[in-house]
Design a protein around this nucleic acid. Sequence first.
RNA 1: UGGGGUGUCGCCAAGUGGCAAGGCAGCGGGUUUUGAUCCCGCCAUUCGCAGGUUCGAAUCCUGCCACCCCAGCCA
Length: 552
Amino acid sequence: MSTEARSNFLKTQIQSDLDTGGARQLVTRFPPEPNGFLHLGHAKSITVNFELAKQFGGQCHLRFDDTNPEKESQVFIDAIQEDVRWLGYQWHGEVRYASSYFQQLYDWALHLIDEGLAYVCDLSADEAREYRGSLTAAGRDSPHRSRSIETNRDIFERMRAGEYPEGSRVLRAKIDMASPNINLRDPILYRIRKAHHHQTGDAWPIYPTYDFAHGQEDAIEGVTHSICTLEFEDHRPLYEWFIEHLPVPSRPRQIEFARLNTSYTMTSKRKLKQLVDSKAVDGWDDPRMPTLAGLRRRGYPPAAIRHFCEEVGTSRSDSVVDVAMLESAVRNQLNAEAPRVMAVLNPLSLTITNREKPEVLAVANHPGDESMGTRSVPFTPDLYIDAADFREEANKKYKRLVIGKRVRLRGGYVIEADRCDHDSSGEVSHVYARVVEGTLGEDPPDGIKAKGVIHWVSATAGLNAEIRCYDRLFSDPNPSKAEDMMTLLNAKSLVRLEHAVIEPSLATAAGEAVYQFEREGYFVADRYDHTHEKPVFNMTIGLRDTWSDSRG
RNA sequence: UGGGGUGUCGCCAAGUGGCAAGGCAGCGGGUUUUGAUCCCGCCAUUCGCAGGUUCGAAUCCUGCCACCCCAGCCA
């Protein structure tokens, strides 16, 4: 996969700004509000900001945009930092908080009042909405718009002192109630919130709004390029208005890009919460969730997520990226780095009738990377193979074990099946086969080659394991467009296999270690539930499959 | 019907007046002790539509059309 940086409008613009001296060194920032868990969409934003800083030799800050205490908490602050680090990024300097700038923001609000550019408005929320007008009709001036500077200063200072109840008044910028851009119709700068803040405690009874805070936060930190998503485009004139009318230490610039949407996925916080609350999934870090915690538990390597974000590109057009692209990035990464092992998901007993003594085979850990070495795999007379790998009879396209035919046991001998037993319901319950001598690392001496290769595990030395097979959470490519997404849930998004058997080398697997179970897919030792006594693996992603039972 | 955006292969996406990159998906073929990987090949005479300017247009102009965002004291 190419890590070659492809051109995009952000890089072009930044290069131009750097060339013309608009900025000496690039400074970006990832500014989440600590009110929820990070998901794939955030990963895109994180990658964009950190990679840009890396590419241009600049720096990227992590700043919590914590201006609305009622929705925020320390739990999210901690989780977000862990997720950003897990993704592979380290922000420049200390973690920053919008709340650290509350005093400066307050002083700047006073500055606007003194300049006659802000006023206290006593309209209720409902009245304010009515005065704001509509998309097609201009708004009307608030009756409090012409208060004197002295009066505004006095009331605002009392707001700050906590003298008024919530909702009783707000501070507004005096811009233009008739602007076709509704964000410019005297936007609210401060509202009264008698809420305990996770960082500032009870120091403030008033809190700045996003619009009044964000650009100034950027300016304080020397952020040169404030990169956000398209829905903030209409806010840019306001962002610039504050920068122009306030004595800020630098002049940041806002640039917007299209947020990442992925098919078969949904990243609305509200809907994700619905999935958790309704128990459709097992929590915010369920392996089927698009949260970073979920992707992590699923076994998606951070490098794969980064590559995916790079490959998808950054543009300004609304789009829905095929989730197959993400899956491809994951396979790509794992193919290179995951050691190979064998595990039988649906065990079928197979007895080797011409062997009595156990043997130990040395099997390569990676077919294309000798440096990954070999491991010992016990080969005993009693084995398990997957039920799907045996048929009493089959056509020529079936390249697995068939009575009277040969197949190679991966990493071991070629065997030939002789007969099988059936259970009371007629299902095959036991297969009997023979080793074809002289086939360890060699083709059969008689020239009759094996039809294919199947994986296996010693029944006596193998370990029982729980394997959780995951599939896409939704069966529809566009769940977020649906009236009721719950009807679009994939009923088979989780299949628990309680009786899988894994090869003994896996006894020492560490939590979060990812392996390729040969011929099946990539599986990760669950970071919470996996123990050496009771192994639990999650299916990260299956191997690419260009063959299906319908063809054979 | 106000304002702001976006339209290039099934899905992303480069391209910035000189004659359509790349990835994903798909389809052929080869190698293979994973029906994986890997390797080779195929996959837009055409850039939302219609006009115009130009020797030359996806790129410039005009007019349409479609889709997305905005009326929180959320971010």
